[in-house]
Write a protein that binds this DNA or RNA. Sequence first.
DNA 1: GACGTGTTCTTTAAATTTGAACTACTGGGA
DNA 2: TCCCAGTAGTTCAAATTTAAAGAACACGTC
Lengths: 160, 160
Amino acid sequence: MSMSEPRWLDDAEKAAWIAFLSATSLVGRKLEQQLKDDSGLSHTQYEVLVQLSAVPDGSLRMTELADRLVTSKSGLTYQITQLERAGLVIRRSCPSDVRGVFAEITDQGREALRQAAPGHVAAVRSALIDVLTPEQQAHLATGLGEVARRLRCGTQNPPT
Amino acid sequence: MSMSEPRWLDDAEKAAWIAFLSATSLVGRKLEQQLKDDSGLSHTQYEVLVQLSAVPDGSLRMTELADRLVTSKSGLTYQITQLERAGLVIRRSCPSDVRGVFAEITDQGREALRQAAPGHVAAVRSALIDVLTPEQQAHLATGLGEVARRLRCGTQNPPT
DNA sequence: GACGTGTTCTTTAAATTTGAACTACTGGGA
DNA sequence: TCCCAGTAGTTCAAATTTAAAGAACACGTC
């Protein structure tokens, strides 16, 4: 293993990193708070409902859902249990695989989402979207989209 | 209060938001893991050391530090206690305000940071920086910098 | 058809985070 | 001086997250 001096971040790179880090924390905190205050849902729970409601039959396998939410399986187990207690989601067993479990959004879950969505979207706008010009939005989508894509596939960087 | 239809996100806006959300989780997860694996520090703890080491006398008031880290005061109390146990930080009382507490990085803390930094920077590069072109980095810094700035000052958006 | 390996999800305990309450103090006025 | 609203940090209990271990099953191969 080489002990060579690492490539530190130059000023421009550092600025990008700091901005990303700050914006990430601040936006996350803001939205978490808005959601909990206005709808009693955590951001994780909200995202569960979003994902489930967006899919044809309103249900996804636990593992698939965990991947989409970028969360651990045990963490999802916990959250689905909470949502199930609240009546917003139910568990169904998978016909083709006895081990499998579907999380399915209930009507009540869809209703909760309907009620929470406007406030959440407004908060997303006020914290992030409406702060950026359409060009900046596009740049963000391109750049961070690529970042996300690579991390998802475990893809390596092209050789420098 | 108006019950008017909220302004939903159009496709471009949604793409930006999704990219931000995904990149945020994935990068955060990646770095958290790298840091813990390679240095035993959580990202929060790492950031505490970074902030303290960056300041002239290596010490900051608890509240100031909590603000910089975008974390709660009780959360910081917990982490500083952990870092103090590990010998990487010590608490000092503030001369001018009996209630005040300084967190100060120790030599051991600086050393821990020195050891953790190269791996962390490499991970930041591989997850984010080196994925982006210099132009994209600049756009990111500008856009998200503005996002962070507004959230920090609790500034409202300019009227649309 | 039995095996061995890899999945799927849950359970568990420990670590961390959160928000509310609490302690102790500051600072400015009446 | 005395009072009092506001601050600084901590404490506490509850909620959440994490990693590791476990239980049950799927699947390809022999």
